[in-house]
């Protein structure tokens, strides 16, 4: 830990913001093309964020304000711990558990802030978001524990490095195909993409936790959402798709994975929250358990099996 760590951390935050916001903007265009529309400009997401930051905003008490800052701070801290193509701000601390616990700070801030607004839709949204999290986390954690068991490591960069050098078939998504499918489905739930977006449904619960945010608060929430997306996609990318040997490879893989998520989202309707839970506890949970048993009892997937 030295000055370079902090410089690197700052650069990561800036780079991630620009990259992910651009990607979100491009993906709005992808979704639009799926719907046979022309779509927004590629920099529309920047305009939206800066416009929101420019507006006045309404406060609903200090819990509401403090929750936004806490969420943004927690999420930004988590971003610094994510290893990108072998670069780490704090080497040796890119453990999956460190990231999960740091992420909880941000999540807690969001829930606190949303509940602090006092709007019933926000409470419903938070409740749905937590239910959704409970749904996708169980199968995903089983698969991640399987990975940790298989590789004797819980470091994101180590697991990513172990998959490199063997071409596309070395990726965990292909070594453990069932686990890979579970991870992709869980990523849809993590990102809040359709069909698992019932907690931010605009027409049903007036965008859920976001209902009382406006102006600067909403701008912060948008920035937070970009960082959050980066963390979630990066975890799955490092664990199942081999991370990246170079930064360009990483960015390319990241863009392809995120766009794939958006394309799925673009053609899907929305699950009700109970349907989402039932779905996750049926198909992905079964696949995750089968994958775990295969890895534990046969060792297929730890060694290359084709």
């Amino acid at each position: 830990m030295n000055v370079m760590s902090f410089v690197y951390g700052f650069l990561v935050l800036l780079g991630v913001f620009v990259f992910q916001t651009t990607l979100t903007g491009l993906n709005r265009k992808v979704t639009a093309r799926l719907q046979k529309r022309y779509g927004a400009r590629w920099y529309q997401q920047f305009l939206d964020i800066f416009k929101a930051l420019r507006k006045d905003s309404t406060s609903h008490g200090w819990v509401f304000d403090f929750g936004v800052i806490m969420a943004l701070g927690g999420i930004m801290a988590t971003v610094i711990f994510i290893p990108v193509a072998g670069f780490e701000a704090f080497p040796g601390l890119d453990n999956i558990f460190v990231i999960s616990y740091l992420l909880a700070v941000g999540m807690l801030g969001m829930a606190m802030s949303a509940a602090g607004s006092g709007n019933p839709w926000a409470s419903i949204g938070v409740a749905r978001a937590l239910t959704n999290m409970l749904a996708y986390d169980v199968p995903l954690m089983i698969v991640i524990f399987t990975l940790i068991f298989a590789f004797d490591s819980s470091s994101l960069s180590e697991i990513a490095a172990l998959q490199q050098g063997m071409g596309i078939l070395g990726w965990n998504a292909f070594r453990m195909p069932l686990g890979g499918i579970v991870a992709v489905i869980a990523l849809l739930g993590m990102l809040g993409k359709k069909p698992f977006d019932s907690f931010i449904a605009p027409t049903e619960i007036a965008s859920g936790p976001m209902v009382e945010y406006g102006g600067k608060h909403l701008g912060f929430m948008f920035i937070l959402h970009e960082f959050m997306t980066f963390i979630e996609v990066s975890i799955i990318l490092s664990l199942f798709f081999g991370g990246g040997a170079t930064i360009w490879e990483y960015m390319l893989k990241y863009a392809v994975l995120y766009t794939f998520m958006n394309i799925i989202s673009g053609v899907m309707p929305r699950f009700k929250i109970d349907q989402a839970v039932k779905y996750f506890y049926r198909v992905p949970l079964a696949m995750a358990i089968v994958q775990g048993l295969v890895v534990i009892f046969t060792g297929l997937g730890v060694t290359l099996w084709f």
Partner: peptide, 22 residues
């Protein structure tokens, strides 16, 4: 809003609550 006239290309879109809207 949809593909015939597509207001999103001008940066316009519907929002859920008055707090979020301009």
């Amino acid at each position: 809003m949809t593909s015939r006239y597509d207001m999103e290309r001008l940066g316009m879109g519907p929002m859920a609550t008055p707090r979020q809207a301009d």
